[in-house]
């Protein structure tokens, strides 16, 4: 048995980059401190905020909902509620929607569930059959559209997602390796744009495995299933490299994050915010005249008519 570096209780985890063993109590403290640090660093939560949590029912968003509720429930000046998007992926999404419902009812949090079917007339499974684009294109565009629209209509001032340190550093390195610096600039926290509810990522300082450890210690449902459409070969290569690098040199995930953060002032100058228009069809914010969701939807509708 290995004991906690802070007390004499049994350790449940080894934080390698800090060379520290922690028991359940001190790990929970450590984890929540990281979350609070990220929230404060980027002023993610302010008095008067009404925070929408994007809750898919997967391990990250379930844990995020739990932690935000714990950190904020005593505050009278901040509210949270959850939004679940049901894309319509047979076999994969229904169990996580059930998990999402259970966690919000256990915690007593307001919860709305919106679906592709009722909003766009088609499930993602149906879109994939009719259209010629990749599933993740449809899913990404329509999911973000629906999350933003629902959050805004429900009066949210922030939209919190479960992205963790691993997700963020993968995206940072991926964009860099693909020479997509404009996309890199989109990772800057707190870009305010009209019609878009500001996105916040309170887990950006925590390791993905620590999210699982935290969830296990609180008996939260840890759904480990992967989306059947998930297919990102380049990202998977970058991900595997980062884990090998981290295994050899603990703490390097933080190095990638800090390098990116140092570039933020320069990225802001290179890519100033462009003013968004309102989509001519639906009124949602878009840099173009017609938004990406309406463009894709029109294409899908004409294809399903002709087939």
């Amino acid at each position: 048995m290995i004991t906690c570096s802070k007390c004499k209780r049994q350790a449940v985890t080894y934080i390698r980059h800090a060379n520290m063993h922690l028991c359940a109590k001190h790990f929970v403290e450590y984890f929540e401190k990281k979350v609070k640090f990220a929230i404060n660093k980027f002023k993610m939560i302010e008095s008067g905020d009404r925070i929408a949590v994007a809750l898919s029912g997967g391990k990250d968003s379930v844990t995020l909902t739990y932690v935000l509720n714990k950190l904020l429930k005593k505050r009278r000046d901040v509210e949270i509620f959850a939004i679940t998007v049901d894309e319509g992926i047979e076999g994969y999404r229904p169990p996580t929607v059930k998990i999402a419902k259970k966690i919000t009812s256990d915690l007593g949090i307001e919860h709305v569930i919106v679906s592709f079917k009722e909003n766009f007339g088609m499930t993602l499974d149906e879109m994939v059959k009719v259209g010629d684009k990749k599933p993740c294109t449809y899913c990404g565009v329509f999911r973000k559209y629906l999350l933003n629209k629902t959050a805004r209509e429900m009066g949210a001032t922030k939209l919190a997602t479960g992205h963790n340190l691993d997700d963020e550093v993968q995206t940072i390195l991926l964009n860099f390796l693909q020479a997509d610096i404009e996309r890199l600039a989109r990772l800057i926290p707190q870009r305010v744009q009209e019609g878009l509810v500001m996105r916040i990522k309170p887990f950006r300082e925590v390791y993905e495995k620590d999210v699982v450890v935290y969830g296990l210690l609180h008996n939260l449902p840890m759904d480990m299933n992967e989306c059947p459409y998930s297919h990102f070969p380049v990202r998977a290569t970058v991900r595997d490299f980062i884990y090998d690098f981290e295994e050899k040199y603990p703490g390097r995930k933080y190095s990638i994050m800090r390098s990116f953060e140092q570039l933020i002032p320069c990225l802001r100058q290179m890519y100033p915010q462009i003013k968004l228009n309102r989509c001519e069809r639906c009124g949602e914010p878009t840099p173009k005249r017609v938004c990406q969701a309406c463009t894709l939807l029109e294409e899908l509708r004409s294809k399903s008519k002709s087939s």
Partner: peptide, 20 residues
């Protein structure tokens, strides 16, 4: 902790990474 000694019995190894 991953650096603890292996003991007899049953363990579960959970793959925590996603996105690929």
């Amino acid at each position: 902790p991953v650096d603890d000694f292996v003991e007899e019995g049953e363990i579960t190894v959970m793959r925590v990474i996603s996105g690929g």
